[in-house]
Design a binder for these strands. Structure first.
Lengths: 234, 234
DNA sequence: TAGATTGTTAATCGATTAACAATC
DNA sequence: TAGATTGTTAATCGATTAACAATC
């Protein structure tokens, strides 16, 4: 009712979360030589159902042709544009432990719209080292570095304890989006975007489903648990 | 209607995904000396609203006391049990690049129900090396290793290209849950649990929201983009 | 025109939330 | 008993899906 004034269309959050998958799928299709694709083929390749795919794409506009399908290159462009990948987003990573180093070298961080431009740590033995072509700077010099170049996305790859303080510093220095790999709850003021990747959460969700596979079997008769089954062999 | 036969309660997927956060929050509260907590305090610490928290907990059972709150230790136990963390889940990691090494050393993988028991790679220069106290084995010897010890959760930390093949081998060898860090779509047969952690997806979702902050400003007048703003200072 | 496939409608399903009765 | 707080109800919201009219 109050929604359709003007401005950019409101795309549902669930759709946004799937656009990256669609984009990657289209890139693979393009590499495979496809110039056009139907929602049916496309959906199969992306691992979703085709009604959902069409509904998702309809939120971006009418980029298909009835009776024909979608032009692969054109759709790649439109999704990239919608996601903001036609801009170049400078990224900083804080925490150069194992994970931070892995992220600094991670290919996806260096392609398609993202550029890692600064690395930070507090440990003297790490500061000054070169990781993936960048010198690790002291986190205390954050503001100095941000004077030289703007940073839009801050990645937190520290342990849990300093994560909130690091996040606060990043936000105070004008970083507008934060991707947090540290376990634990981190909060940001309104207007700052925060996403979280939590490895142990993912494992725990798998454990839950694993246990559910086990439980029904255990009820009728008493069967040995996973822990008890094998474990003897040499 | 057909649901409430017997068997373990069906807990909504959205609730399951929040249980790990609740568990971590409770652990912090316990470390802080709290023995009891109200849903209001608890919700604030976990970063959710208290109605949602109570609803979530009600799916596990009635573990609170009206007028009083929840016993912290008891709730820790109940959530752990629900998530299957009272079992011990053996984990294998495939791919010992930067990310795989980071994961092998990651604390969460070694605590609370999970134990990394095998590391695999195919590169001769990595095989035989010791990472976090474990010797990296050739992936070709997967079945041999699984004879010695069962593995329930397989973690894929390879590049995108071999991910599906690695996944197929894991599943064929009896691995029942897969956590995939490789970009791209990987599919598993029914009955096998699959979760995906995709770093570039997370970045792209941030980029979308970042762009949306920019767009409304650009419409009335013509303003410089982020890329054009700073960038002069030495 | 006939066949194909999109974009949209409407029904269904699941998740969130406020409010409050139950109860410690 | 009075005050506090849970567990549940019911309303609302958003996401999914099947079906099909629009249209190439």
């Amino acid at each position: 009712m109050t929604d359709d004034q003007a401005g950019p269309r409101e795309v549902p959050e669930a759709t946004i979360a799937r656009l990256p998958v669609y984009l990657r799928t289209l890139t693979l299709l393009a590499e495979g030589g496809a110039s056009s694709v139907s929602s049916d083929e496309f959906a199969r390749a992306a691992g979703v159902n085709s009604a959902k795919l069409r509904k998702d794409l309809s939120h971006l506009g009418s980029y298909g042709v009835r009776g024909v399908g979608y032009d692969v290159e054109y759709l790649i462009y439109q999704i990239s544009r919608e996601l903001g990948l036609t801009h170049d987003w400078p990224v900083a990573i804080v925490g150069m432990g194992n994970l931070g180093q892995a992220l600094a070298g991670y290919a996806s961080f260096g392609t398609k719209g993202f550029r890692v431009v600064a690395l930070f740590d507090t440990a003297p033995e790490v500061i000054g080292r070169t990781v993936s072509g960048l010198t690790v700077r002291p986190f205390a010099e954050l503001d100095e570095v941000l004077c030289d170049q703007p940073i839009v996305i801050g990645v937190i790859a520290t342990p849990a304890a300093p994560a909130q303080a690091v996040c606060d510093r990043l936000v105070a220095s004008g970083v507008a989006s934060v991707l947090n790999f540290a376990p634990g709850v981190v909060t940001v003021p309104a207007g700052v975007e925060l996403r979280k990747v939590d490895l142990s959460t993912e494992l725990q969700i798998l454990a839950y489903h694993e246990q559910r596979k086990l439980l029904p079997r255990l009820e009728p008769a008493d069967q040995p648990t996973i822990a008890a089954t094998t474990g003897t062999a040499r």
